[in-house]
């Protein structure tokens, strides 16, 4: 106990609070990415390997639109809409023919899509990192740091998008269709719900959420063609830890893991902090393979 309290006192409180804020901000973006992934998995049984690439594509489209019009908000909405259309197209071209086949085929197909998108981005935009300027220039003082308001704003906006999406699932007509399809595909079809349309719509919504988080995140680190893979890996970890196809679990897991990683960077290099999320994943697999944030299956 003595060693523990000594250990805790060795970390300055201000650093701890800064890392908490950082962790929550990163966690909210991750939650937005992961909720698209978990939505597509929960309803279509498709593990979307190309999700990170849709995130990256959204960020690039944001870069282009900001360069053209100078408006960040226009870029955010337009990028989400364009990527939603691209996502619908991809679903129709590559996933629709695979409905009814072994789900492993869909992993392979989306993996192929991710290769194509990633190399397309490299070819079109080159290997240099692009940047979007922060739309809110102001910052506030957090201990010794000038903390940009924009970071907090991302967290709030991500939460707003997720809540809006949740309300839409709960009350919107299409949302009810989606939930019905997730519950029982065949029965939903028998009730007259156009299931293929629901699939395409779900994929488009997931893609739009990925694109929106891509644009939101772009001002923080810059846009490169490899950014997708880092995020999709993290999102996969989150989705497994949170329980596959479980929206609330994914969000909780996203914040949990981001907080842990953020605290880990107090002691280690950020590139090694990733190991923390790997460890969480391993422990989850060992002791609760169904996911940390779901009720125990009977």
């Amino acid at each position: 106990m003595d060693a523990l309290s000594h250990f805790l006192h060795s970390v300055p409180l201000d650093l701890f609070i800064i890392q908490t804020v950082n962790g929550i901000v990163a966690g909210m973006i991750l939650a937005l990415v992961a909720s698209g992934l978990t939505l597509i998995f929960g309803i279509m049984d498709v593990v979307n390997f190309a999700h990170g690439e849709l995130f990256m594509l959204g960020a690039y489209i944001g870069v282009v639109i900001v360069a053209m019009t100078g408006s960040f908000w226009l870029a955010l909405t337009a990028s989400a809409l364009i990527v939603a259309l691209i996502g619908a197209g991809l679903q129709i071209a590559t996933l629709r023919p695979l409905i009814g086949r072994d789900p492993l085929n869909t992993i392979l197909a989306t993996f192929g899509v991710s290769l194509i998108l990633q190399n397309f981005a490299l070819w079109e935009f080159g290997p240099t990192v692009r940047r979007i300027p922060e739309p809110l220039g102001t910052s506030f003082t957090l201990f010794y740091l000038q903390y940009p308001w924009y970071r907090l704003f991302i967290a709030v906006l991500s939460a707003a998008i997720i809540i809006g999406f949740w309300l839409f699932l709960k009350h919107g007509k299409f949302g009810v269709w989606i939930r019905a399809t997730a519950q029982d595909r065949i029965m939903a079809q028998a009730m007259g719900i156009p299931v293929p349309l629901v699939y395409t719509g779900v994929f488009a919504i997931g893609a739009a959420m990925a694109a929106a988080s891509g644009v939101l995140f772009a001002p923080l680190v810059g846009v490169s063609h490899t950014m997708g893979l880092d995020w999709v890996l993290k999102a996969f970890i989150v989705v497994v830890v949170g329980g596959m196809g479980n929206l609330a679990g994914s969000i909780a897991a996203a914040i949990f893991i981001s907080l842990l990683e953020s605290y880990a960077t107090i002691w280690v290099d950020p590139s090694q902090a990733v190991i923390v999320s790997f460890v969480v994943l391993i422990l989850t697999l060992l002791f609760r393979p169904t996911g940390l944030f779901v009720s125990t299956p009977k």
Partner: peptide
């Protein structure tokens, strides 16, 4: 040339 774009397409077509 981004050879993985055509190869990726061949790959997807082969899966289907």
């Amino acid at each position: 040339f981004p050879y993985l774009i055509p190869l990726g397409m061949i790959f997807i077509v082969m899966i289907i």
